[in-house]
């Protein structure tokens, strides 16, 4: 496309089928204890860079 660039391919509606396992981290257990932010959590089924780094050690 000439006028529009789309940033992401994973769409919310697609996660209806794949999501909902409930195994991911609870948001207030991460860094904040006063201002709820959920979208910056990771899906449990995605291996993070720090997991890989830890496994390499």
């Amino acid at each position: 496309m000439k006028h529009i660039k789309t940033l992401n391919s994973k769409l919310l509606n697609n996660t209806i089928v794949t999501g909902g396992c409930g195994e991911c981290q609870t948001s207030c257990q991460s860094a904040c204890k006063t201002s709820c932010t959920v979208a910056n959590q990771s899906c449990e089924n995605r291996v993070t860079a720090s997991d890989l780094q830890r496994n390499r050690k």
Binding site: T15, C32, V38, A39, N40, Q41
Partner: peptide, 16 residues
């Protein structure tokens, strides 16, 4: 922390 956003591997709809 508050600018973290994983557009390809973020939380599923059920969580959101």
């Amino acid at each position: 922390f508050h600018f973290m956003i994983d557009l390809e591997g973020g939380p599923c709809l059920a969580k959101r």
